[in-house]
């Protein structure tokens, strides 16, 4: 029971990470209509910048700021240099150009930092753990990650639903032509949205850096899960990204934690282990296929 609760919290923590990535991606998708496979690279940039600065200066907070700045700058550079030329292109060109960006980002990172993973420790304030249930101590840092994720979700909700910029963003996600017709500085809006998405991806990377191993390719693994979240949630829907992110994060964590054990009760150990790991990895994709069969445009699709 306690184990289950702990894994649920782990799932929640993974879920908010997915949400941070998916929120930016779904806005970029919905507003600019562009598929950005390189979104995971911005996550990696954030994690690397934060870890490197944290190692050099010994300050987690300095690392946090550097990570956010680096990913936002990288995001703006990508938008100005590449994305702008892709808005009018078809999906195929977008997929390939951003696939090329992944290769470029990954190899540049190898050139700068090498292939060895960077390790950082959590800041002292969060180094302990909290006994959230009798007999269940839980790392404070992971609780902090969950809190940050939920705070960002609330902030995005307010930004999108209560401000003029948010109104434009919402309108853009449902009807691109209309926003153009309103005479808004569309280029500026696009750059801003892309920078926001990059910032959120960078934040996800920074928050994850003390928990996961910071290495080249870390963005590739999580970007596929992020796309699953975006598609299940419905392209353009931040609410969908939140719901799908949390649900998938928990679903995936639960499968990985318990499926191999369950399988071991019906088949020999090593095979159950391999099959359990494999099937757990398939879980989110299976879920996406099922959701799309019932709702071809995702759960909270902006348009019917």
């Amino acid at each position: 029971m306690i184990l289950l609760f702990e894994q649920l919290l782990n799932g929640l923590q993974y879920g908010v990470t997915l949400f941070l990535l998916a929120a930016g991606l779904t806005l970029i998708f919905g507003i600019m209509g562009v598929i950005n496979l390189a979104h995971g690279a911005l996550y990696m940039v954030g994690a690397f910048a934060a870890s490197w600065v944290a190692i050099q200066t010994g300050s987690f907070w300095g690392g946090l700021l550097s990570g956010l700045a680096a990913s936002a700058i990288a995001g703006v550079a990508v938008e100005l240099g590449v994305m702008r030329r892709l808005y009018a292109r078809d999906h195929l060109d977008q997929v390939l150009a951003t696939f090329a960006l992944i290769l470029i980002f990954n190899q540049s990172t190898v050139l700068i930092f090498g292939r060895q993973p960077l390790f950082t420790s959590v800041p002292d304030v969060f180094s302990g753990s909290v006994e959230i249930l009798p007999g269940l101590p839980y790392p404070t840092y992971r609780l902090f990650v969950i809190a940050v994720g939920l705070a960002v979700a609330l902030g995005l909700y307010l930004l999108i639903n209560k401000t003029r910029v948010g109104m434009l963003v919402r309108a853009g996600a449902t009807n691109r032509q209309m926003v153009r017709a309103l005479g808004v500085n569309i280029q500026g809006l696009y750059t801003a949205v892309f920078a926001l998405g990059a910032l959120l991806a960078g934040l996800a990377g920074v928050m994850a850096s003390p928990i996961v191993s910071v290495q080249v390719g870390m963005g590739d693994e999580i970007i596929l899960a992020t796309f699953v979240v975006v598609v299940i949630g419905g392209v353009g829907s931040v609410k969908g990204a939140f719901v799908a992110g949390i649900v998938l994060g928990m679903f995936d964590t639960m499968l990985r934690a318990f499926l191999p054990g369950l399988l071991q009760q019906v088949m020999p150990g090593p095979e159950a282990q391999a099959l359990g790991v494999g099937v757990s990895s398939m879980g989110i994709y299976l879920m996406m296929a099922l959701v799309l069969l019932v709702r071809p445009r995702g759960l909270f699709a902006a348009r019917g």
Binding site: V231, A289, R297
Partner: peptide, 21 residues
């Protein structure tokens, strides 16, 4: 977009299926 992603998803399922065999 959904078509691109669902074909990717199925390919991933096969990928993990063979890894687990």
């Amino acid at each position: 977009v959904q078509f691109i992603m669902i074909t990717l998803a199925f390919a991933q399922m096969f990928f993990f299926l063979f890894i687990s065999l």
